[in-house]
């Protein structure tokens, strides 16, 4: 008994402990499997109801006013434009100062790919999330003079016109997105649904 057990550890030179490796691998696999419920619980819990259409009563919206509705958890600006507003939107000087005056970037349904970026000219409907870093722009109504109505972003000064089109030389890269919308009656606007015969997958837009 002079050769103590503990010193015999080195009697198997070169031969790796295969059994030990298999067992360790088995333990490691089990530990990884334990992570499954943890990871599962982190899955985003998106509300299915958020995808249902939202009806907005616009009967109390006066010309030149703007209101904010909530659709899919996002603020949606609903703007009732005056005839002057509409004239301004087609003003050459303004158009020359826009990054994407023709809405060529996919930020709206096809039925809003027009000079007023909406279904009917009178009502503008825009997701009120700045395409720069996501702040909510502030509406500034037309008050006469050369103070043209527009949206100003409080965070880094991006400017959009009354059709949600982004000005040149500001940090925001794209026009404000237009959600699918339809006027179901003269006083009721439905967000999240397209007019008959049209369809639009909002998640296909370039960027919010």
């Amino acid at each position: 008994m002079t050769d103590h057990s503990d010193t015999t550890e080195s009697t198997e030179p070169g031969r790796r402990d295969f059994l030990g490796m298999v067992t360790t691998a088995g333990v490691a696999a089990g530990a990884c499997a334990c992570a499954v419920p943890f990871v599962q619980s982190l899955a985003p819990q998106d509300s299915a109801s958020a995808h249902l259409p939202v009806d907005v009563d616009i009967s109390k919206l006066a010309p030149g006013q703007q209101m904010t509705a909530v659709w899919q958890g996002k603020p949606v600006f609903i703007l009732r434009r005056t005839p002057e507003d509409l004239k301004q939107l087609q003003d050459a000087a303004l158009v020359a100062d826009l990054r994407d005056p023709d809405s060529s970037v996919l930020q709206q349904p096809s039925y809003a790919k027009n000079w007023h970026r909406s279904f009917v000219p009178e009502y503008g409907v825009y997701v009120g999330v700045c395409t720069h870093l996501g702040c909510v722009p502030v509406y500034e109504a037309t008050t006469g003079g050369d103070n043209k109505g527009r949206y100003n972003c409080p965070c880094h000064g991006s400017k959009f016109d009354l059709a949600g089109r982004v000005r040149k030389g500001v940090p925001a890269p794209y026009n404000l997105p237009v959600p699918p919308h339809v006027l179901v009656s003269p006083t009721q606007l439905r967000l999240g649904e397209s007019p008959k015969g049209e369809s639009f997958d909002f998640s296909s837009i370039v960027q919010i």
Binding site: D17, G20, T23, G26, V27, G30, A33
Partner: peptide, 12 residues
């Protein structure tokens, strides 16, 4: 799984 692992661990 645990029974399989137990057999391995006992052998080891």
């Amino acid at each position: 799984y645990l029974i399989g692992l137990l057999v391995l661990a006992i052998a080891w």
